[in-house]
């Protein structure tokens, strides 16, 4: 193994069902249903998935949903804005925890 992440592993995802087929089937069925058009369009769902993929820093998901977004007709402006949304939430999430720091500091300081 040359590294922890290999692009060739993405098409092998289904092997996760080899030793737990029922759980895999349930996951697969739910996953497929999630991405069906509903109150949100397939394009919107792919943009959300792309943003989350960056937030969780999953290279497989970034690969899959970059392709997914392009196949849904999204463009790089829209996709870049989606990544900025994810980044803003991640950055904001870190920053807002600063209030905990301030609360603790206040509590133990004179």
């Amino acid at each position: 193994m040359d590294g922890y992440y290999d692009p060739e592993d993405l098409p092998r995802f289904a092997e996760m069902g080899d030793d737990a087929p029922e759980l895999w089937d349930k996951f697969n069925s739910w996953y497929g249903a999630v991405f069906q058009p509903g109150a949100l369009s397939e394009r919107e769902k792919n943009l959300i998935a792309l943003a989350v993929a960056h937030a969780v820093q999953c290279p497989y998901c970034i690969d899959a949903y970059t392709q997914g977004c392009l196949e849904q007709g999204s463009n790089l402006e829209q996709m870049t804005e989606a990544v900025h949304v994810a980044s803003a939430i991640k950055g904001g999430s870190a920053l807002v925890h600063g209030l905990q720091m301030r609360n603790v500091a206040s509590k133990i300081s004179m």
């Binding site: 369009s41 397939e42 392009l70 196949e71 849904q72 007709g73």
Partner: peptide
């Protein structure tokens, strides 16, 4: 005519037509 500008498949025709 829309055709993909890269190595990917086209989107749903109705959705991209609306765009």
């Amino acid at each position: 005519v829309y055709n993909p500008t890269g190595a990917f498949l086209p989107p749903d025709q109705d959705a991209i037509e609306a765009d």
